[in-house]
Nucleic acid binder design. Structure first.
Lengths: 148, 148
DNA sequence: ATTTACTCTATCGACTTAATCGACTTATCA
DNA sequence: TGATAAGTCGATTAAGTCGATAGAGTAAAT
């Protein structure tokens, strides 16, 4: 399950993508429109700002703006930023690899092999799906499952 | 990330599948062999027993036995049992569906559409992969990703 | 100078996770 | 029949995470 925070982040980015590209949107407006607790959303937007996804303007007529085109912001990027690695096992993460504490041999790990397939699938889907895709309802990836 | 408990459960089942099919295996033997805290493993095996995956014999010459063939125990089943639903959103779970608390319309949910693909992929992989597959190193599913 | 709005750090309570404890029950065997 | 081996089971713990809130601070505009 993805966290509530990640859902909020994605919804906020979608809201920003749907707003006028030059007019800053108020935190409060996003919070009201998307039903997100105001103060919680502040933190989230700040995180997104620190990672370069959005920018902000202070003072009157301030607010938030998308810093990159919605076609270039992927779900994978947002999820990693908020929830951490996508991989189901630490030893399968491309972006935050580390050995499982009690693992004797990665090559021989029976469960690792199975989860490697899961990791590939989620990575592929989430790193291809963009905010723009989400808004348009267009799916970036078609997945075909074959029996071995 | 899957929980430590789920990893232990899978490793324990694999160990049982590799043991003689009629000789009960001691909790302590599995714990030692797999480096799992003894008392924690007790709980896990009890859960697996209550769900009908294994059986136990008490007293001298007691221990645990697999109750079903390794070809019929899937990763998906074990993970659901230990960690709960596989789906990344509650509204995408087949086995434990429930609405997202703050969701206005599922049909119009932009993020739901993306995660539906993730849910399909993980479900397919994990519900096809069995304990027997894990041991043999044979992968049950080949996944092909196509661009839309 | 005042108002508006974002910034930042700290804190909260509820829950979850991983693990441990200890008393109990059941089965075997001498 | 009683000692011993082994699983059963509920309670408890410590640490961490999650979702949310509080409040003082800073920057910009008028």
């Amino acid at each position: 399950m993805i966290s509530q925070k990640a859902k909020y982040a994605l919804r906020a980015l979608i809201a920003l993508a749907q707003a006028a590209p030059e007019e800053p949107t108020l935190i409060s407006d996003i919070a009201d429109q998307q039903d997100i607790p105001r103060k919680f959303l502040e933190q989230i937007l700040l995180d997104l700002k620190h990672r370069g996804l959005v920018m902000s303007r202070r003072g009157k007529a301030g607010g938030y703006l998308l810093l990159r085109p919605p076609e270039e912001i992927t779900f994978g990027e947002v999820l990693r930023l908020i929830d951490g690695p996508l991989a189901p096992l630490p030893c399968l993460s491309k972006t935050a690899y580390h050995r499982c504490a009690d693992c004797k041999s990665e090559k021989d790990c029976h469960i690792r092999r199975v989860f490697a397939d899961v990791a590939d699938a989620t990575r592929t889907v989430l790193d291809r799906a963009t905010i723009a895709d989400a808004i348009s309802g267009h799916s970036a990836t078609r997945i075909v499952f074959e029996l071995n």
